[in-house]
Simulated assay, not measured.
Amino acid sequence: MSEQHTIAAELREDVGKGASRRLRHAGRVPAILYGGHLDPVALTLDQHEMRHATEQESFYSSIIEIKIGDDATQQAVVRDLQRHPFKPVIMHVDFMRITAGEKLTIAVPIHFVGEGQSPAGKTSGVVIQHQVTEVDIEAVPAALPEFLSVDLSKMEPGDTVLLSQIELPDGVSIPALAVSDDNDVAIAIATHIRETQGTGAAAEEAAEAEADIETAADAGEDVDESDGSAEESDDKGEGD
């Protein structure tokens, strides 16, 4: 079960770009709450409270209690969050209501554990690369996990961990795996550093260039030696 957050909200009737701009200047965040077989509702949120909440990874994959006014409370998940390009300001938030018993699809982070204790992690010249850091899952709200944990403690050099090898909690599935086997991608790879730095056509070209340089260097040494011998022979002739 994922962590639950509570956010205070107020209803708003003034909508549009101008209204949203005024709200942001007043330290508020325009938002919308939709879904759950109910009409959409326009809300405003506190900018400071939202910035603090969004600093927590679990906020994006957890059930959120939205307290509207003094009485009404609705459960939702974050569907979209827009930030200012360079200012620490949240521009807009979309929340989707959830309904108990109805499955929802949401992206959750992947936490890799045991990497330092693995044979691959202890082998010099081997690096474990995390290819995927989050995945879309499907679950009812009550079974929604905050994150998925992947144990790498037994990973050997050259091993690959696939998406299908994630141990899922009860009631949780990965929809992409039901669509096609092609979606069973690598999420972690233990590879040798040399393999990542010296493969392909670029490596072959570099090797050929190095060979040409060595050949030229050898030829230069031969010329120098012959020139030296000729000069030495001339000197002897002049002496005679």
Rank of each mutant, 00 (worst) to 15 (best):
A26S: 07
V108P: 00
I166G: 07
A202N: 08
V135K: 06
A31P: 00
Y34K: 01
P145L: 00
V113A: 11
D184L: 05
L81M: 06
E65D: 14
D235L: 15
I189W: 10
A230E: 10
Q129F: 11
Q165D: 11
T123C: 05
K122E: 04
S149Y: 13
E134P: 04
R79A: 06
R12K: 05
G18W: 07
S61W: 11
H25N: 12
I110K: 08
A216C: 02
A201W: 13
Q75W: 07
A26Q: 06
L152C: 09
Q197G: 03
R194K: 14
A19W: 11
Q4R: 09
V172R: 04
D14H: 15
V126P: 06
G101F: 01
A219F: 03
A76T: 00
I213G: 07
A76N: 01
E208V: 15
H52E: 13
R194I: 15
M155Q: 03
T160Y: 14
S153H: 04
Q117C: 06
T54L: 13
V140G: 09
G158N: 05
D234R: 06
G114D: 00
V140D: 10
P88L: 08
I7R: 06
D159G: 04
Q47I: 02
E225K: 11
G220K: 06
R22I: 02
F147W: 15
I193R: 11
D182M: 05
G200L: 01
F112N: 05
V29N: 02
A72Y: 12
G36D: 09
D184Q: 09
G116T: 09
D227F: 09
V185F: 09
E146K: 02
L144Y: 01
P85T: 07
T105A: 15
S61K: 08
N183M: 03
T73C: 11
Y60T: 03
F112V: 06
S180Q: 02
A19D: 10
P85S: 06
D184N: 05
E146R: 05
L162Q: 08
K154P: 12
E205Y: 10
L177C: 04
A219M: 05
Q74E: 09
D240Y: 15
T160N: 15
D14R: 15
E208S: 13
S229A: 07
A178S: 14
S20D: 10
G220I: 02
S173I: 10
D71G: 09
V108F: 02
A9G: 03
E102K: 04
A188I: 08
Q165K: 12
P169A: 06
M155H: 03
F59G: 10
